[in-house]
C-alpha cells in the first residue's frame, strides 16, 4: 500500500531563489513525521508547497507528490480546494494574524464543515464547540461568538488547531502548532493529536524546532538544512545514532538532564543558514561543518546508515566523532 503522503525531490523557487532544493519524505497513515531544522531552512515553505499554498511567485516542482495514492502535482485550484481543509488540513505558524479580524471565531470554524460536508449551521456549531472543548478552551459557546482580537495568542492558536480538525482530516500538516502555548496546554494538544491518530489513523507532518516534542511524539524525523532534507530516520535511531554533522549539532543544542554537567556550555552550531546561490554544488553545510573536506564541494552521496536511515553526507556511515574519540 502506498504512503498517505509521498513526496520525492520537492523543489520550490521564488524568482531565481531556491527555497527548497530537494525534500523527500513520506507520511504513513497513523504516523507522526517530524520535520526539524533551524528557522529559514525551508520547513514552512515545504509545508505550504505540499498544500499548494505558496505565495504569489512561488514555483513548485517535484519528482513525485501524491496524497492517498493520488498524484496532486497537477491538480487544479478547484480540486485542491476540495482536498484542503477536508482530507488534508494545515495549521499555519502565525496564530496572531491567521484569523480573519472581521469575522467571528464561530463563523470561521463552522464554514469549514459547511463547505466540505454540507453540514447545517447547528451541526457545524456543535462540532466547533466540541473541538474547542477538546483543545482545552473553556466556555466554547462564548468563544464562538467572539472576534479574534478578543482572544489571547494561545487561544487563537488553539482555534487554529480546532479549525484544522473540523473535518477529521486524514493528513494534518502542522507548522509549529504549539509554540505559543504553555507546557500544560501543549501536552494536552499533543495528547489530543495522539488520540485522533489512534482513533482515525490521522497522519501528521509536524514542523517544529522543539526536539523535546520530537522525542515525545515523532515516529520518524527528517532534518532539513538550507532547503534540503539532510537526514531522515526513525526517531529512536536518529537520537541514538545521528549521522549528519548538522543533526549532531542540533542534538547537542538540547540540554539533556543528567548528560549536561553544570557549568559546561551547551553545544551550538556556529554561523547561520546560508543563502544558496543558483548552481550551487556540494554540501550546503560545509562552511559551518567541523568535518568538512575536499569531497564536500562535489555531489554528495545519499548514504544508508540503516534500513530506514538515510543521510546526505560524505562521511562514512557509522563514523565516530574524532573529538569524542
Amino acid at each position: 500500500m502506498s504512503a498517505l503522503l509521498d513526496v520525492r525531490n520537492l523543489r520550490v523557487t521564488f524568482g531565481g531563489t531556491a527555497a527548497v532544493r530537494g525534500a523527500s519524505l513520506t507520511v504513513e497513515k497513523g504516523e507522526t513525521h517530524c520535520l526539524v531544522g533551524e528557522s529559514g531552512c525551508g520547513k514552512s515553505v515545504t509545508a505550504l508547497a505540499l498544500m499548494g499554498l505558496l505565495a504569489r511567485g512561488g514555483k513548485r516542482e517535484a519528482d513525485a507528490l501524491s496524497f492517498a495514492g493520488q498524484d496532486i502535482r497537477n491538480l487544479g485550484e478547484r480540486d485542491m480546494s476540495r482536498l484542503r481543509g477536508d482530507r488534508m488540513a494545515m495549521i499555519v505558524q502565525e496564530p496572531m494574524t491567521s484569523l480573519n479580524p472581521a469575522d467571528t471565531v464561530g463563523s470561521q470554524l463552522t464554514e469549514v464543515l459547511r463547505r466540505h460536508r454540507g453540514a447545517s449551521r447547528a451541526q457545524a456549531v456543535d462540532r466547533a464547540a466540541e473541538l474547542l472543548g477538546r483543545v482545552g478552551i473553556t466556555a466554547p459557546g462564548l468563544r464562538l461568538g467572539q472576534y479574534p482580537h478578543q482572544l489571547s495568542g494561545g487561544l487563537r492558536q488553539r482555534v487554529m488547531i480546532a479549525m484544522a480538525l473540523m473535518c477529521d482530516p486524514e493528513l494534518l500538516i502542522a507548522d509549529e502548532p504549539t509554540t505559543a502555548l504553555d507546557v500544560t496546554v501543549q501536552a494536552q494538544i499533543l495528547r489530543l493529536l495522539a488520540e485522533l491518530q489512534a482513533e482515525f489513523g490521522l497522519g501528521i507532518l509536524l514542523i517544529t524546532h522543539d526536539l523535546g516534542v520530537v522525542a515525545r511524539i515523532a515516529d520518524r524525523v527528517s532534518v532539513m538544512y538550507a532547503g534540503e532534507v539532510v537526514e531522515s530516520a526513525p526517531t529512536a535511531e536518529l537520537f541514538a545514532a545521528p549521522q549528519h554533522p548538522y543533526t549532531r549539532g542540533l542534538l547537542t543544542c538540547v540540554p539533556v538532564p543528567g548528560k549536561v554537567k553544570r557549568g559546561e556550555p551547551l553545544g551550538s552550531i556556529p554561523g547561520v543558514v546560508p543563502r544558496i546561490p543558483p548552481g550551487f554544488v556540494g554540501c550546503s553545510f560545509r562552511d559551518r561543518c567541523a568535518y568538512a573536506h575536499a569531497a564536500c564541494k562535489h555531489d554528495i552521496p545519499r548514504q544508508h546508515a540503516g534500513p530506514d536511515h538515510e543521510a546526505l553526507c560524505t562521511l562514512p556511515p557509522g563514523w565516530t566523532d574524532r573529538a569524542a574519540a
Binding site: L48, R84, G85, D86, V92, T97, N100, H116, A164
Partner: peptide, 11 residues
C-alpha cells in the same frame, strides 16, 4: 495570513 488560512480551509 488570514486569506492563506481561508485557502488552507479549502473555501
Amino acid at each position: 495570513d488570514y486569506i492563506r488560512t481561508a485557502r488552507a480551509k479549502g473555501l
